Amino acid sequence: MSTSISKSEPATLSEQDRALILATQNGLPLVPDPWGELGEQLNMSADQVLERFQAMQESGVIRRVAAVPNHYRLGYQFNGMTVWDVADDAIAELGERVGELPFVSHCYRRPRHLPYWSYNLFAMVHGTSRDEVENKAGKIADVLGEACSGHTILYSSAILKKTGLRLRKQTDKN
């Protein structure tokens, strides 16, 4: 599970919310009823746990609660961050379309750093071969069409551990 904190506005966390985030920083309990398990740990009902997560998501404190699979263990040994030079007036619409492709695990806009880096759209794809990644990049190129003036693929060379924001437990000294 991944919990991501929004950067738009500072938020005040209740003690319950903070306890929930601390309890799930390493993932949801792998049990049939994770909300009930968390509730037992934190002296809350399963419904209260779910309501708190939904409220934090609605307020923007948490962007999402999601599974974070290990793509290497699933057989996807080739991982390419495709980067694209997309016309600024088309990037919002085209970025949405690329992000909706079933083989794109994440997609986002980034600033250009001219003259060294002209790419402003990033889309991560995974494959069982380099050819598969390049085929998927070709499908992205088809979506972008003439609005794209260049791209490349940056392949992973190491596995990096993905984690979201980590909260520290509060002590009397904090």
Rank of each mutant, 00 (worst) to 15 (best):
Y72S: 06
S129D: 12
L50I: 05
S105E: 12
A141W: 06
P29V: 03
N79S: 14
M1G: 13
Y108P: 00
L13H: 04
L28A: 12
L101A: 13
A11T: 13
K139W: 04
S59I: 03
Y119H: 15
H71A: 09
L114Y: 04
L94S: 02
V65G: 01
A19M: 07
S8C: 01
R52Q: 11
K136E: 11
L165R: 14
G39E: 06
R166H: 09
M81S: 10
V98E: 02
L50Y: 08
K161N: 13
A147G: 05
R52I: 13
R130P: 04
Q41K: 13
N43F: 10
S2N: 03
G80Q: 01
V98T: 05
G75R: 09
T163D: 03
A19V: 03
D89K: 14
A90D: 15
P10N: 13
E100Y: 00
Y108I: 06
L28V: 11
Q41H: 12
L74T: 06
T3N: 00
P10K: 10
L167T: 14
F122S: 08
M44K: 12
A19F: 05
R112V: 13
A11C: 12
M56K: 00
A141K: 15
T128W: 14
Y72E: 07
T152L: 06
Q48P: 00
E93N: 04
Q77S: 13
C148V: 05
M56S: 03
G164F: 01
H71K: 12
D33H: 14
G60E: 05
A92R: 09
K169N: 11
L42A: 05
L42C: 12
Y108F: 15
H151Q: 10
S6E: 07
S59R: 15
K169V: 11
E93C: 00
R97W: 03
R18M: 05
R73P: 00
K161L: 10
D172E: 10
T128D: 07
S2E: 07
R18I: 12
E37L: 00
Q25P: 03
S129V: 08
G27W: 06
L20R: 09
V143K: 01
L165G: 06
R52K: 13
L74I: 05
L94C: 03
K173A: 12
L167H: 08
E40W: 01
T171L: 15
E9C: 05
A87Y: 01
L167V: 02
M44G: 02
A158F: 08
I21W: 11
T171C: 01
Q57C: 06
G150T: 12
A23C: 04
K7E: 04
G80M: 02
Y119E: 15
E96N: 10
G36W: 01
G127R: 11
S156D: 14
A141V: 15
R52M: 04
G27L: 05
L144T: 07
R73N: 08
S156M: 07
L94Y: 04
A66Y: 07
R110K: 07
R97C: 00
A67W: 08
M81T: 12
V49T: 13
V83T: 09
T163C: 03
T171Q: 10
L101S: 02
G138T: 08
Q57K: 10
V68G: 06
V143Q: 04
M124F: 08
P10W: 02
I62T: 04
S6R: 07
I159D: 08
